[in-house]
């Protein structure tokens, strides 16, 4: 069953057609399907729906590439990306790892995914000149974590 309904898909498609400027990647860290096996300590209720949602979104535009990695088999890449929880995904143009999402971007958080794709793709987020000047002058790195719930 699809997660996105036709009207959501249409809205997203419109935005992508107008606003996606270049190729953008979604890299999901999850665990490989255990074939229905329930392994204590390896339960991941949202891994499958997160994968499906991200796949559905990536299929809306040819500019989006979806890649799925395994947190254990791809441990080196997970460490490089600072990922230790599943499901987690990155939105990137290339090898950068600075836009991360932990969990499923569902409900009220779905627009965050779309904004991230559009902004990373364009590299020209809709931020003010003041903010841009401030960021250009940053002498240290900034780590901004935002805790949310889906509704």
């Amino acid at each position: 069953m699809q997660i996105l309904n036709d009207s959501d898909r249409e809205i997203v498609k419109n935005r992508f057609e107008n606003e996606l400027a270049s190729e953008v990647n979604i890299t999901l860290f999850t665990q490989m399907d255990l074939g229905g096996l329930i392994v204590p300590g390896r339960e991941c209720e949202t891994c499958a729906p997160t994968e499906q949602l991200l796949k559905e979104v990536s299929e809306i535009s040819d500019l989006i590439t979806f890649k799925k990695l395994d947190i254990r088999n791809d441990a080196e890449e997970a460490a490089r990306c600072n990922v230790s929880k599943i499901p987690s995904f990155l939105v990137s143009k290339g090898a950068e790892t600075n836009v991360r999402y932990l969990g499923i971007p569902a409900g009220g958080e779905f627009p965050v995914l779309i904004e991230a794709l559009v902004n990373v793709s364009s590299g020209e987020p809709k931020i003010s000149e003041e903010t841009k000047r401030f960021l250009d002058g940053l002498e240290e790195n900034l780590l901004i974590k935002t805790f949310v719930t889906p509704n």
Binding site: T97, N98, G103, D136, N141, L142, K145, T146, F147, P150
Partner: peptide, 28 residues
């Protein structure tokens, strides 16, 4: 901001899925 510069790392955490992170950061 993170889309503008890699000096900014932006991380969103769905706290219901990771209650241990919610506890660690005392999310109320």
């Amino acid at each position: 901001m993170a889309a503008f510069t890699q000096k900014v790392v932006a991380e969103v955490i769905e706290v219901q899925e990771f209650p241990e992170l919610g506890n660690a950061y005392q999310v109320r």
